[in-house]
């Protein structure tokens, strides 16, 4: 879980399928024009969209704008 003192919830926010803000331990795995894969806590998140624009990326926060989202996949990572 998050180590941040303030703002630990909500864990995931999705708004109008255009913006996503993820708080917690984030590790980028693949960033491409139309596809982004990153590991968040125990999940692997895969997003497919026409284009991405990362508003902010810092330790434990990712604010991402997407246009025309096609697919979001969350996969639990087994130990």
């Amino acid at each position: 879980m998050s180590k941040r003192l303030l703002q630990i919830v909500p864990l995931i926010e999705i708004e109008n399928f255009q913006g996503i803000r993820i708080r917690g331990d984030i590790l980028l795995e693949a960033i491409h024009d139309h596809q982004m894969v990153f590991i968040h806590e125990n999940f692997k998140i895969k997003i497919e969209a026409d284009s991405f624009h990362v508003n902010l990326l810092r330790d434990e926060l990712l604010a991402l704008d997407m246009s025309n989202v096609k697919k979001i996949e969350l996969t639990r990572i087994e130990d």
């Binding site: 984030i26 590790l27 980028l28 795995e29 693949a30 960033i31 491409h32 024009d33 284009s51 991405f52 624009h53 990362v54 508003n55 902010l56 990326l57 810092r58 330790d59």
Partner: peptide, 27 residues
Amino acid sequence: VEAFLNALTKNNIILRNLRLSEEEVRF
């Protein structure tokens, strides 16, 4: 590139307006 960006965030560097294209990544 991905590992480099992860390393930056782990070093408390804030990246803004990250844009992706085929040849380059800008922030």
